[in-house]
Design a protein around this nucleic acid. Structure first.
Lengths: 115, 115
DNA sequence: TCGACGTTTCAACAAGTATTGAATTGTTGC
DNA sequence: GCAACAATTCAATACTTGTTGAAACGTCGA
């Protein structure tokens, strides 16, 4: 992942409303939720939801799916995984660091180790 | 972790310069680096570094350590781990989701599963 | 086709953020 | 003590972001 992409994703999550939306969708699972249901769940105006979900979508953290006149949004779990891998990349120059962080083994890291 | 704390950490990382600083420190390991060395490595003015590192420090992502007239900063790996756990918390209502994200097992998650 | 509903776009404003040079604080070694 | 150096604070400026209501766009069911 390029630094700019990581920044986009982090910036998308670095806002209370958007973080609530994202976590809501993470918990909702692959099925996702439609726009107005999300707006109601996090208690914001429809236009605010549009603004924020567009932000998350641009960052590649959520994906829209049209279904009739509803638009369902769901979290992109793979993107999340890649972001986490980026943040913990080359931790302590590949050596063992503190026990807790060493335990964070994302798919990307395990791939790298296997290669 | 409280939502506001998560937002603080994410906002701290959601900026090119600060992300570079943080990753530099993650890679530097527990020993960390002193302020001017960091400023030189990421090529910014000392005052800019102060601004950004204070941001990271306030968010609890890096910790300062005075050593003579130098101040060494190092990444707080535990804080990082907690942030990651927060983001993937209750993924798909605890059920299995996509294979890749399911693989992200932070210490906090494993603790929760054991309990 | 028309009214109703879900969603997005727009305009405007308030609030927050990044950057820099200059000034300041604090520590070291002579 | 004092000069040299490490680091932070300050002030000023340009820029970005969040919020909202009103208007517009699309899709559906009757």
């Amino acid at each position: 992942m390029k630094p700019d992409q990581a920044v986009d994703k982090l910036a998308a999550l670095a806002q209370v409303t958007r973080l609530r939306i994202f976590r809501l969708l993470v918990q909702a699972g692959p099925g996702g939720m439609n726009a107005s249901a999300i707006a109601e769940a996090v208690d914001i105006a429809p236009s605010s939801l549009s603004f924020h979900i567009a932000h998350l979508s641009r960052a590649g953290l959520v994906a829209p799916r049209q279904e009739g006149r509803y638009i369902f949004y769901s979290a992109d779990f793979a993107a999340m995984d890649e972001l986490i891998a980026y943040l913990t990349d080359n931790c302590c120059q590949g050596g063992q660091c503190l026990p807790r962080t060493a335990a964070v083994a994302t798919t990307a890291k395990r791939r790298a180790k296997a290669a």
